[in-house]
């Protein structure tokens, strides 16, 4: 490979409330490296950590970067960003790059799930967030895991064998968290509660309305808790497909936008 060709990579960073994600994207929008780390402490430190790890994964160095696209809650904390763009725009761009058609995209990140109408040309035509009270789904799942006394990653395993979801309110994350304690006290099984928590998130999304086929889902919650997508499918009574590598969709979109700017 020629040195100048190797130089044409960009990074995309999605600095979210629960996880910071980075991808390294090369020619043709091919993902060469990726990394994710839980959000903790200062965002800048997390960004530095994932960016280095993604470059390592791609066997690249910082000097190979022609640009850095940033998105997510803390996009302003990405040092050296050549471009910043909103969650909705980046997720639309990332999903469109992989799927190549118009779609309704449900991005379920740690903060506020939102619905993005992705147009025929890949642009975001419309975007809608869940109500303010219904946001904070990532922290809500962490809370659920803590009270079920399991690692968050085990929630999915539990939910997948539940016969039915426990009734966990969907009005707001605080009410829902209290409901989890009540169900625990009443003796509901951990499996039912795990599934109930996923239904609670799906219900908040269903209320957004405006779903047109095909419906795709992406975001960190989708990556780690695919039960939420299944719950969504049940409630919507329509197929909901998952974007490949759903946690990186936003970072990919940010990278693609940075690449456009660099060329």
């Amino acid at each position: 490979m020629m040195p100048d060709e190797r130089a044409r990579v960009v990074a995309g960073v999605d600095a979210g409330t629960e996880c910071v994600k980075a991808v390294i994207v090369g020619a043709g929008g091919r993902v060469e490296g990726r990394a994710v780390a839980p959000t903790r402490g200062y965002f800048q430190a997390c960004v530095y950590e994932v960016l280095s790890a993604a470059l390592d994964d791609a066997q690249r160095t910082e000097s190979d970067l022609a640009g850095i696209g940033a998105t997510g809650f803390a996009m302003g904390c990405v040092p050296g960003a050549t471009l910043t763009a909103t969650d909705a725009a980046c997720h639309a761009a990332g999903a469109y790059h992989l799927i190549g058609q118009r779609m309704t995209l449900v991005n379920i990140g740690g903060r506020d799930p939102h619905l993005i109408a992705v147009a025929l040309d890949g642009r975001r035509a419309d975007a809608r967030n869940v109500r303010r009270c219904a946001a904070g789904v990532g922290s809500f799942l962490m809370f659920t895991a803590r009270h079920l006394d399991v690692l968050p990653t085990r929630l999915q395993e539990l939910a997948s064998v539940a016969d039915k979801p426990a009734a966990v309110s969907s009005y707001c994350s605080v009410f829902s968290s209290t409901a989890i304690l009540e169900r625990l006290r009443e003796g509901a099984s951990r499996e039912e509660i795990a599934l109930g928590a996923m239904h609670s998130i799906a219900e908040r999304i269903v209320e957004l309305g405006g779903f047109e086929d095909p419906v795709y889902a992406c975001g960190g919650v989708v990556e780690y808790f695919p039960g939420v997508v299944r719950a969504l499918q049940t409630l919507l009574e329509r197929e909901v497909r998952t974007v490949p590598d759903p946690i990186f969709t936003g970072a990919l979109g940010a990278a693609l936008k940075a690449m456009e700017l660099a060329t």
Binding site: S169, L181, E182
Partner: peptide, 10 residues
Amino acid sequence: NDLRCYSDEQ
């Protein structure tokens, strides 16, 4: 009617 706004416990 919206029972999500009521907590039995509370």
